[in-house]
């Protein structure tokens, strides 16, 4: 989870990723950010994130992102 937050903070240091649950709904993450996050997560956790996983429910919070990573690791 810490690593996911680190990756996100690297992109937007001004956002509190511990509490924010509207990263997509409030347009905090744009499409460029999403690609960067996926690229970093794939590298970090050695997973493949397919395009169908790019839905707001998976990217709206650090917690949701981490849950997706865990699911794809299994």
């Amino acid at each position: 989870m810490e690593r996911v937050i680190e990756i996100l903070e690297d992109l937007h240091p001004e956002v509190d990723f511990e509490t924010c649950t509207t990263l997509i709904d409030d347009e905090i993450l744009d499409s460029f950010d999403i690609v960067t996050v996926i690229s970093e997560l794939s590298d970090e956790f050695d997973i493949t994130i397919p395009p169908q996983e790019i839905i707001p429910e998976n990217f709206n919070s650090a917690k949701a992102l981490y849950a997706m990573v865990k699911r794809l690791e299994d």
Binding site: S31, V35, S39, S42, T48, I49, P51, I54
Partner: peptide
Amino acid sequence: DYVFYPISISQCSI
């Protein structure tokens, strides 16, 4: 959704 994301997160791009 159908071009940018699939290409940008493809294994080739990574």
